[in-house]
Amino acid sequence: MGQPVFISMKTIKKYLTIFKLLVSTRLSADLSFRVSFLATIAGSFCFIVLYIATLVLLMPYVNFGPWGKQEMWLFLGVFLIFCYTVFYLFWRGLWHFPENVRNGRLDFYLTKPLDSQFFVSIAGGGLHNLCAMIFGIILVAWSFQNLGLSFNVVNFISFIITLILAILDFYSLAFFFVVLNLRFSYLGEAAYEIWDFQSFSRYPTDAFNNVPLIGYLIAIPFSVIITIPANTLLLKDLRIMEILVFFLASLIFMFLVRKFWFHELKHYSSASS
């Protein structure tokens, strides 16, 4: 409970080593079941097929405002990088969390001399997610070239920073929901349900220009987190204030979720439910 709110810089190396260890363990597990591995690759690319098919079917009928056809492909690429990085880094940990709470295995995570939020969240990503992420990068590079854009270091760095913030924001939200398992005993795949909200992130904010008030509260925040990095990559006007607000809002949100985690841990009896 008395853990610091933010991980100190001194321990970053230690955590990176642990992360590498988790990734390599997962990698060897992935490669030991070859047929399963191929099936997981197919499973990962299914989502990509779904996203591409939806966009292909929609494009002749739907106007996404200032986002032309090629720009929409770039947007999709950014979304795929976001989506599969979240999967790669956090999904496995978040997926197992409800069961860990239910059967008392969470004790194992809490009693280790590591940051508990880090340890329950990071469980080593699957190689199939990494492959899908690389596909997203290729899609972005292909669209970037087709749009005839020139590389700009400032925009690129802004893109990386805003994308990392988007990933951490989404992770924090998913983590917030799985942490509710501590209070409500068993919510099952709560994080998986939250994942459905990425549906709003697949389209730019301009696609939701005539929505009711509730739409601005639900759809726009999810859409904004991808629109901002995509905008910076497209060399559209670099809106420093927008990025700063995004940065501050993300930090506050992550801080609050972390506080919530430590607060909710008080509801965990460790005897399993």
Binding site: V62, G188, E189, D196, A219
Partner: peptide
């Protein structure tokens, strides 16, 4: 026994339809 879980699961099914409805409504 896990009503909130059931509710969340059903409510999340509505996210994709809501997205599509709002996109089409904006046209």
């Amino acid at each position: 026994a896990y009503r909130l879980r059931l509710f969340l699961s059903l409510a999340s099914n509505l996210i994709v339809p809501i997205t599509m409805i709002w996109i089409f409504s904006s046209l």
